[in-house]
Nucleic acid binder design. Structure first.
Lengths: 385, 385
DNA sequence: ATGAAAGCGCTAACAA
DNA sequence: TTGTTAGCGCTTTCAT
């Protein structure tokens, strides 16, 4: 059996040799129809697990200094009830012996890891990694690390991750639910535990857990009003999956704006997509076929907005002249689009930051003050609307 | 003193009230000149730290069942030397008592956390979060979690993070160096420790540490040759910071291609940027001023390529007719650019995956086989070149 | 100011 | 098959 592993599908089965290219063996993976070369895998040397020497522990320093373990611990932790002389002596010795505290032992006795757990649906979506960045920044500024788990939008994985993390691995949990998640017992059973929890971005209603949300409703309202003021009357909306609280909030804001300006709400102007390019393109086709007089499109994300504009341009519809397009999220892609994208900045990073701050507050205070925070966003007017 | 905190700069000083808007108090932060409202901060209730009840431990189950702690441990860990009857009995009891193992204690006695440490320069750059995604996927498939630290491109932070993580917090370390990092003692001192290390993307030469790299040299060579075949003779290159091994590798590939096709290398066609839009725009201005006959630009990243194209369009230079542009990385932005971006796909996610695989192999085998892996990429031909 | 000793929850070697 | 015991490295209480 071939020991070569496909670089694409990661299997060792069904690999065939496929000629030599530039002096290197080329392979073909039948499973995923992928050609590749083993391009420069150099095995330099094979040193054994020759761990140099054992980590020095408090007891080693105790032995070397003649003091007890307790005293050494006190000296190294800057406790007050110790003579300056002893403390300095021990610190110098520890330095010389290259002492490194075993954080695992420390965490164990304190039952605290100085680590936050974060569960997000995916790392491939800008919006999540941006929130993650905010979380990380805030956490780091308080000396906390973060441990990341992804649910891949699946309930099972989300649930398993919660369980694992809550078993003393972390001091606090930040969670953004998967699409699949629509029951919340896996979370609610942890509500009264030592470890605090904060939900962000996609949250469950009715749980006694702090939350940090984007201003979806208000955002949709502002965006819609802006378009109405520009003269639009037939405003289509591209939403995410129907069950999404996010879709519902945005829809609500949209409806309020319409009502306020006495425009009839037409359900048929809404489409619900799964974020794939396919479904976005389909939506555009659908609108143009059944509602050729559509004069604006509000998109669930900047990425989808970009796809919408690309699609419209490909069939020679002018943006914003014929159809105005607005996105959500203020991602980089909006800046380089042609025309530049008008978008509602949901302050994604701030959501992460605030969620992080909320949980750090709970950890340091020991209080379980339940807060619901809505991060205000703002409309970024550019050229597409 | 005001207790309101600025949503932008995160301070409580210098906050002024600034009128009422839609029934909500509006504020102004003098420090960072930012207006905001406290938009819907609801304090729902303030429950104390009423931890329901202590976590049940092995000893609780031992007491309840009449068996010893050791037997309970064996039963719950599916060890063989235990009667089926006892095992089932204990498992049922544990379930009933809602036992959850204390992972921290487990990690402590095993000195293994089933966690990989990852140090990356930033979470705000697509390329890093994409690699992270690859790392995470591979790790999760082997039951490992990942703990993320960012260096923010600073040596100090990188060094501190290495130190913290290597103190028994993790089973393996994956590191992508910061720009600032140009000495590597902070890493080399850990080479012979129990915890294996793998460098990826930005690596140090001369250390006995496994590495996973993008095929920068080959990529630049392919890209350059492609442009030459299209008839380009005056090919400018936008590089990252000069000290970057990445910049050097790409430069090398570029030079080889020129030499092969007997085109003179002109150092003045190179610019070195810091990834900011400013420096990219400046580069374009520079080329157009001093080398108006430039017929192609190779960019360090797709993001910069996008900025280059935006800039060229703004001064009515046609891409690819007058100047061809090629990016690196195959990011989403390239697909929606107009014209669509020709780019070299460095297989960013694969780099993460392979780095992760490498370290998992080292962990499970206990071997320290030092490998250098170059992940092959491929040219994606679209419209910009 | 310092030391002795208990204990955190679990695993594993050894004994029975 | 089951129990006893030591111990992982550290913190902390209680003596001295």
């Amino acid at each position: 059996m071939s020991r070569v592993r496909c670089l694409q599908c990661n299997q060792t089965e069904n690999i065939r040799k496929a000629g030599i290219i530039r002096g290197k063996q080329r392979f073909y993976c039948k499973t995923c129809s992928y050609h590749f070369t083993e391009d420069k895998i150099e095995k330099v040397k094979n040193i054994g697990p020759n761990v140099t020497d054992k980590q020095v522990s408090l007891s080693d320093i105790a032995n070397a200094s003649g003091f007890s373990i307790a005293t050494v611990s006190r000296a190294l932790n800057e406790k007050s009830d110790i003579s300056v002389k002893t403390r300095e002596l021990i610190k110098v010795l520890a330095e010389k012996m290259n002492y490194q505290p075993n954080l695992l032992a420390k965490s164990f006795v304190k039952q605290s890891t100085k680590t936050l757990g974060v569960i997000i649906p995916s790392l491939d979506t800008t919006i999540f990694s941006t929130m993650l960045s905010g979380i990380q920044e805030m956490a780091a500024s308080s000396g906390y690390r973060i441990i990341i788990c992804t649910s891949n939008e699946m309930y099972e994985q989300e649930s398993a991750n919660i369980q694992a993390l809550m078993n003393n691995m972390i001091d606090g949990l930040l969670i953004c639910h998967s699409i699949q998640t629509n029951s919340f017992e896996h979370l609610s059973i942890h509500v009264n535990k030592r470890i605090p929890i904060v939900q962000f971005y996609r949250v469950a209603l009715g749980l006694s857990i702090s939350q940090v949300l984007a201003s979806d409703e208000r955002g949709a309202l502002e965006v819609t009003e802006y378009l109405i003021k520009k003269g639009c009357r037939k405003i289509a909306v591209l939403l995410g999956p129907k069950e999404f609280s996010l879709s519902q909030s945005r829809l609500k804001g949209y409806k309020i704006a319409l009502k306020k300006h006495e425009i009839n709400f037409d359900e048929r102007l809404l489409t619900y997509v799964d974020f794939g390019q396919e479904s976005v393109y389909k939506s555009v086709d659908y609108w143009l076929t059944y509602f050729p007089d559509v004069d604006a499109i509000i998109s669930i994300s900047d990425k989808s907005a970009a796809q919408i504009i690309t699609k419209l341009k490909s069939i020679n519809i002018k943006v914003p002249n014929q159809i105005r397009v607005v996105g959500f999220g203020n991602e980089f892609v909006g800046e380089i689009l042609d025309p530049k994208l008008t978008t509602f900045d949901t302050q994604t990073k701030m959501i992460g930051k605030e969620a992080s701050r909320l949980i750090l507050d709970q950890i340091s205070s020991g209080k379980r003050e339940i807060k619901k925070l809505v991060i205000p966003g703002k409309l970024i007017v550019r050229d597409s609307a």
